[in-house]
Amino acid sequence: MTIIVTGAAGFIGSHVCRHLIRRGEHVVGIDNLNNYNPVALKHDRLSAIRGEEGVGGRFVFHHLDFADHEALEAALAGESIESIVHLGAQAGVRYSIQNPRAYAASNLVGHLNMLELGRTRQVKHLVYASSSSVYGTSPDLPFRVEQRVDFPISLYAATKKSDELMSESYAHLYRLPQTGLRFFTVYGPWGRPDMAVWGFTDKILSGEPIEVYNGGNMRRDFTYIDDIVTGILAALDSPPPDDGAEKAGGSHSPHRIYNIGNNRAEELEKLIALIEQACGRKAIRIEKPMQPGDVPATYADLTAIQRDLGFQPTTPIDVGIPLWVEWYRGYRAQRAA
Rank of each mutant, 00 (worst) to 15 (best):
G10Q: 09
R18Y: 09
L20G: 05
L20H: 10
I21F: 04
R23N: 05
R23P: 00
H26G: 01
N32K: 15
N37L: 14
N37M: 13
N37V: 15
D44C: 01
R45S: 06
R45W: 05
L46F: 06
G54N: 08
V55N: 03
G56S: 10
V60I: 12
H63D: 15
L72E: 05
I84A: 08
Q90T: 10
Q90H: 11
A91R: 03
R94K: 12
P100Q: 12
N107E: 11
L108G: 00
L108I: 15
E116L: 08
T120K: 08
H125D: 02
V127E: 10
S133L: 02
T137V: 11
S138Y: 01
D140N: 10
L141A: 05
L141N: 01
L141C: 03
L141Q: 08
R144L: 00
V149L: 02
D150H: 02
F151W: 04
Y156H: 13
A158G: 06
D163C: 14
L165H: 03
M166S: 13
H172N: 04
Q178S: 15
L181D: 10
R182L: 05
G191Y: 11
D194A: 13
D194G: 12
A196E: 13
K203S: 14
I204H: 02
V212Q: 00
V212L: 10
Y213R: 09
G216A: 02
N217R: 12
M218W: 00
D221W: 11
I225M: 13
I228G: 01
A234T: 09
P241C: 06
P241L: 14
P241W: 04
P241T: 08
G244C: 08
K247M: 04
H255Y: 08
R256D: 02
I257K: 01
E267G: 00
I272Q: 05
G280M: 12
K282R: 15
R285L: 13
I286L: 13
E287C: 00
A297N: 04
T298I: 12
I305L: 09
I305P: 02
Q306E: 14
L309T: 07
I321D: 01
V325R: 11
Y328M: 15
R329Q: 15
R329H: 10
G330T: 05
A336Y: 14
